[in-house]
């Protein structure tokens, strides 16, 4: 039985696979940084005492971590400089631009809706506590 020619093929691949390109290292760094920011957003969303503070953590951390992770994986997938690779990079940049525009917008809309709905922030000021929310009827 001579199936050795099948066993020969992966050996060459393993020796080639060993090292990472510089672009992949940059992408991994960006994606790891984005995961770190998303850890901050998740902890803030879990532990903060108030609607507004939770919104603060969620809005900022979510936007920045999405941007960083998407840019990192755009750099990881951008191996060959072909036309398809450039198109892929352009599409991922489109998603990044879209998230950069829409995430603060939806954060603003939700915050405004919550404020007009009369959600009170946590304060130490007793006068503010007595006066109540923004539009309470």
């Amino acid at each position: 039985m001579s199936f050795l020619f099948l066993a020969n093929a992966p050996v060459v691949d393993e020796s080639v696979q060993a090292e990472l390109s510089r672009l992949e290292i940059c992408g991994m760094t960006l994606a790891g940084l984005g995961l770190l920011f998303f850890l901050g957003a998740a902890v803030g969303l879990f532990r903060f005492p108030d609607f507004y503070t939770r919104m603060h953590a969620a809005g900022k951390g979510d936007t920045l971590s999405s941007l960083l992770i998407l840019l990192g994986f755009a750099l990881i997938t951008f191996d060959d400089f072909s036309a398809l690779g450039w198109l892929l990079l352009l599409k991922i940049f489109g998603i990044v631009l879209f998230i950069m525009l829409t995430s603060p917008t939806s954060t603003h809309a939700l915050m405004r809706a919550g404020f007009e709905d009369g959600i009170e922030p946590v304060t130490n000021n007793p006068k503010r506590k007595k006066k109540g929310g923004a539009k309470k009827k």
Binding site: L45, F51, R54, S103, L110, G114
Partner: peptide
């Protein structure tokens, strides 16, 4: 609104 932010 908390639920809505988390869903977002």
């Amino acid at each position: 609104f908390d639920r809505l932010v988390a869903v977002n």
